[in-house]
Design a protein around this nucleic acid. Structure first.
Lengths: 152, 152
DNA sequence: ATAAAACCTCAAGTAATATTGAGGTCAATA
DNA sequence: TATTGACCTCAATATTACTTGAGGTTTTAT
């Protein structure tokens, strides 16, 4: 734990410290800053300094990314939240609920696709008589590929 | 259905026909060809012609993409398969089983993450006493982000 | 026969998410 | 104090998966 000259825990973090403790590269922190995801102030020598709560913010960003949410959306969700003090319980609840819903959707999509695959493994999938993958009303694409005619 | 001069169904498809029937853009088919995912031959006027089985191949590519598999991996998986005749039942079974496994893993990751989120919604996640997101042994990252210290 | 639609190649552009490098400054330590 | 490690900016590069455009040819339809 970094200490000040007087031996107490430092309240501010350098970019290297944030990198080490959050697990993201320094360059990534710079990048996030240009995207407005995090903020810093500068010391006399123009070096970035972060409040400790930035670690929480980075953690939240990473969680959201794991759910597949693009950075721009994360930035939008975080934009209404303060950079300089911890998120409130309410803040976090709202965020996590929204993201959980999106996550649920993605899981549902992937699960449905997996079940199709499972079925196709069984059916050999060569007669294409009843193959679900052939189903033109299939809307499972993760990126909204949309319905597609697979007339094989 | 395209017909030959003699009125029978054409055995070969133009790139536009493949595009229309597979739901991918012509430019995408060109692109896939440069990546070795599909193949074509040329007619007298240097235009691409495809066997009908290319539609199946494109369908397989799209299914794999929906599971989140990168094109390069799909190309590798398909590279051992013939371009000029339909996949055998065995071919398809092998592919779909592999992909199903990967899909299962992704679903498991996302589900675990969702459950963490669900827990965090309940706990308010501000005391950070028992927050799973703080767990340094968490290995759920979709892209193998690896364990990370989230000492908040 | 001619015009429109479809096709060709090759290069460049797009978007997301960063990483790398050059050239230079600041800060911690021996 | 001198050196080394950390930091700075800005531009360029990387990857994935395509799309767009320019300039030209072929095929199809009238």
């Amino acid at each position: 734990m970094k200490k000040n000259p007087d031996g107490r825990i430092s309240l501010e973090l350098t970019v290297g410290e944030v990198a080490e403790r959050s697990g993201v590269a320094v360059s990534t922190l710079h990048f996030y800053e240009t995207k407005g995801l995090i903020k810093s102030w500068r010391n006399r020598g123009n070096q970035r300094r972060y409040p400790r709560v930035v670690l929480r913010r980075v953690a939240v960003i990473k969680v959201a990314q794991r759910t597949g949410i693009p950075l721009a959306d994360i930035a939008a969700a975080l934009s209404v939240l303060p950079h300089d003090r911890p998120l409130t319980a309410k803040d976090w609840q709202r965020l996590s609920q929204t993201w959980k819903q999106q996550l649920d959707q993605r899981i549902a999509s992937l699960t449905a696709l997996r079940d199709q695959l499972t079925g196709c493994i069984g059916c050999g999938c060569l007669s294409m008589q009843d193959c679900p993958l052939r189903n033109p009303h299939d809307e499972l694409g993760e990126k909204g590929a949309g319905p597609v005619l697979l007339e094989l």
